[in-house]
Amino acid sequence: MATFSGSGLTCLRGENLVFRDLDFTVAGGGALVLVGPNGSGKSSLLRMLAGLLGPAAGTLTWDGEAVTDEPDEHHARLHYVGHHDCVKPILTVAENLAFWARLHGSAATSEDRLERALHSLDVGHLRDVPGRFLSAGQKRRVNLARVVAVPAPLWLLDEPATALDRASVGRLNDAIAAHRAAGGLVVVSTHQDLGLDDPTILDLADFPPGPAPGVAI
């Protein structure tokens, strides 16, 4: 079982310290839920885990190996859902999805698999609709279908329930449960209770920035 952990993580945005000395560990099948008030660094932490943002201090390890040593390998094992849904308005839902699947090197991803991913989030009937006709919730579901379509051990979800109705949140939960049952890891930030089974809660308010570091010259 894979283990993903970070130790002593410190996040600096511009000249602003967001959090410091943050530690966490998630093992295969586990779920880490990030909570905390606005500006406490939930999104920044997820971007850091995705490799988009370099930590000012601290290390991230996957099965004991630093992820910065092999960034491409790390990218191959993660799915990231950010604030945007990156659904191209001119491409159809199926085309959008097929592109990301192919980019994840999964030429073997059959039509069938994409189809099932779409259905699992109840957007199967939209497969030939161009992205510009979708509502915010539908776009979000297409984005989540992208995550479901190609298997990857690590899911990083930033506020995945935004714009989703009750039924869709349930489907998201099912997808996460299936992912965890298969040994996958998930790190998710949220303001509402998603109702995940047995989550580990990480409250970012426990890692206050403290005094800003002086500019030393």
Binding site: E15, N16, P211, A212, G214, V215, I217
Partner: peptide, 18 residues
């Protein structure tokens, strides 16, 4: 420039109520 940086840091801390 360094002084301006310090001023910015102070402003930021002010904005964050520290």
């Amino acid at each position: 420039e360094v002084t301006a940086g310090k001023v910015r840091a102070l402003r930021l801390r002010q904005a964050h109520g520290a």
